[in-house]
Every structure is written in C-alpha cells, then in structure tokens.
C-alpha cells in the first residue's frame, strides 16, 4: 500500500518551542503566519500579518513524553 506523506511541522515549529509560543500556520501548514505568547495574541498577530485563516498550535519542546495530565 502506498504510504501517505505525513505533515511535518518539526522545522516550522522548532524556533518557537523553547519559548512555548503559540504559532499560527497557514491553512496548508507550510508557513508560519504569526506567533504569540497567548492564543489571543497569536490570533491578533495573524490578523495583522495575513488574510489567511490561521491554524493554531502551541510549540513545545517535548511532544513525545507528553502525557495528557491536567495541571493544577
């Protein structure tokens, strides 16, 4: 069976992971439209930088060891 190509966000997100920034990507997830310390800030910055609808995800350094534990 032919394999699908994964969506690779490693290089796009890496520069912002150290600061745990929210990142707004373009709908194809190939470019960074904006970043921000909060969701509100990244949405605001994305509006200033582009007319494209932003795709929001937070950059962190460790997704592999990420266990869905809710922090108090």
């Amino acid at each position: 069976m032919k394999k699908f190509k994964e969506i690779n966000l490693i290089e796009l997100i890496r520069p912002y992971a150290k600061d745990n920034l929210w990142v707004a990507l373009n709908p194809d997830q190939t470019r960074v439209l904006a970043t921000g310390k909060t969701l509100k800030e990244v949405i605001s910055n994305a509006k200033k930088n582009s007319n494209e609808k932003p795709v929001l995800i937070k950059a962190i350094q460790n997704y592999s060891m990420f266990i869905p534990i809710l922090q108090p």
Partner: peptide
C-alpha cells in the same frame, strides 16, 4: 502530523500524532 520532542537527557524523538484541524469561522 510529525512533531519533535527533545528530552532533558539530550535525546530527540519523532512523534507521530493524529491531529485534526477543526475549522471555526475565523480560525482552525
């Protein structure tokens, strides 16, 4: 979706996640 994880031991792992884009009126 592929993302990278850097552990405190200095190792890096590739994480493959089933992420879905939810489309709202002004954002995904």
């Amino acid at each position: 979706t592929i993302l990278q994880s850097d552990t405190f031991l200095g190792k890096s792992f590739i994480t493959k996640l089933p992420l879905l884009k939810l489309e709202f009126s002004k954002l995904y």
